[in-house]
């Protein structure tokens, strides 16, 4: 058994959003008479944290406690229009729409409070704890619940707001193909270390060192969660997963989880993550979002590390032991580049 170690590097500039005849997201925000707010979206939360991060953004913009905001998503029959949860666009597109909707709702909430307090709405501030008071005079105060009830039962106002964030369609230049499909990019670079068994062709991903620039990390726990899980998926795409191992021949494809190989809890690489926060100018509170970028750069880094380890350049995923062994044989043996 001859084990060879290698290191591979990859970097990525990842676009936020897509050029699909325009890239709009809408949000609607309204308060109930108890002073709590509902945010209606049609973007799906499939575990990536869409609800959590839009809830934070709405609470921050409205100036109310996060516990007073409920995010309702995923009914595209009744909700506002959205292009969807894809293209790493969620935090950026929906977040901006939620800010616009929340600002409009906040303005009405402050007008309702101003009428009750008999002051100018421009003099009012929120404390984020469920209270609205006159700037510099905290005793001149009203709760958001009392303001909402006054709006509903005395003033006849709807504390509500509409938001849309639209990136218009970028026309493609027929001569050059030039267009501006995205508004912002997220970035990452990582180094992967692998060990390749030159006799069996097996590849083990040992370690990942990564740096991600995602704008401001609006929820650092969720950002790390996405990066960690996404890197696992990238490792899995690189060296494990396929539905068609002999494509275009469809034979030998897996038909169930027993035959669809994925790394299990005993096959993990250590992963050290650095998140660089560089707030995006057009992002909601500076956020861009990790999205798909958390998986993609792992693949080329793994392939580069294999090349470093045994001198085999593989351009057909996943990297199976068979491909590694065929490459080593074609080269007349393993050709490790440099001892680490």
């Amino acid at each position: 058994m001859t084990l060879h170690r290698g290191r591979g590097f990859a970097a990525i500039n990842y676009p936020i959003g897509m050029n699909l005849g325009g890239d709009p997201s809408q949000a609607l925000v309204h308060s109930n008479p108890d002073g709590k707010f509902t945010v209606a979206l049609s973007a799906i939360d499939l575990g990536q944290g869409m609800k959590s991060v839009t809830r934070q953004i709405a609470a921050e913009t409205l100036g109310v406690p996060i516990a007073d905001v409920y995010v309702d998503t995923a009914d595209s029959d009744t909700g506002p229009h959205d292009m969807g949860s894809f293209a790493s666009r969620g935090t950026h597109r929906m977040g901006n729409a939620v800010i616009q909707a929340s600002l409009e709702a906040r303005a009405v909430m402050l007008e309702a409070a101003a009428e009750e307090l008999e002051v100018d709405a421009g003099d009012l501030v929120t404390d984020g704890q469920g209270n609205i008071h006159v700037r510099g005079a905290p005793s001149r105060t009203i709760t958001t619940m009392a303001a909402a009830q006054a709006a509903q039962f005395r003033q006849g106002r709807t504390i509500a707001g509409r938001g849309i964030f639209l990136v218009p369609l970028s026309e493609v230049d027929p001569e050059t193909g030039e267009m501006s499909p995205v508004t912002t990019f997220a970035h990452a670079a990582l180094v992967v270390e692998v060990e390749v068994d030159a006799e069996t062709g097996e590849v083990e991903v040992l370690d990942i060192q990564s740096a991600y620039e995602v704008g401001r990390a609006l929820n650092p726990g969720l950002v790390e969660q996405q990066l960690r899980g996404g890197a696992w998926m990238g490792m899995s795409h690189a060296a494990w997963e396929t539905t068609e191992p002999y494509y275009p021949d469809r034979d030998h494809g897996p038909v169930d989880f027993d035959h669809y190989a994925m790394p299990g809890p005993g096959d993990l690489a250590t992963h050290h993550i650095s998140v660089l926060e560089r707030p995006a100018e057009d992002g909601p509170y500076g956020g861009k979002g990790p999205g798909e970028m958390c998986a993609n750069p792992v693949l080329p880094a793994v392939v580069n590390a294999i090349y470093d380890a045994v001198g085999v350049r593989i351009d057909d995923l996943p990297v199976t032991p068979e491909k590694v062994l065929r490459g080593i044989r074609a080269n007349g043996g393993a050709r490790p580049r440099q001892a680490l």
């Binding site: 575990g47 960690r228 809890p265």
Partner: peptide
């Protein structure tokens, strides 16, 4: 022992580390 105990449970999102 933790890895062994959850080795029959597939997870597609987390990469297992946070669970462990």
């Amino acid at each position: 022992e933790v890895v062994e105990a959850i080795s029959g449970n597939l997870c597609r999102c987390t990469g297992y580390d946070p669970i462990i």
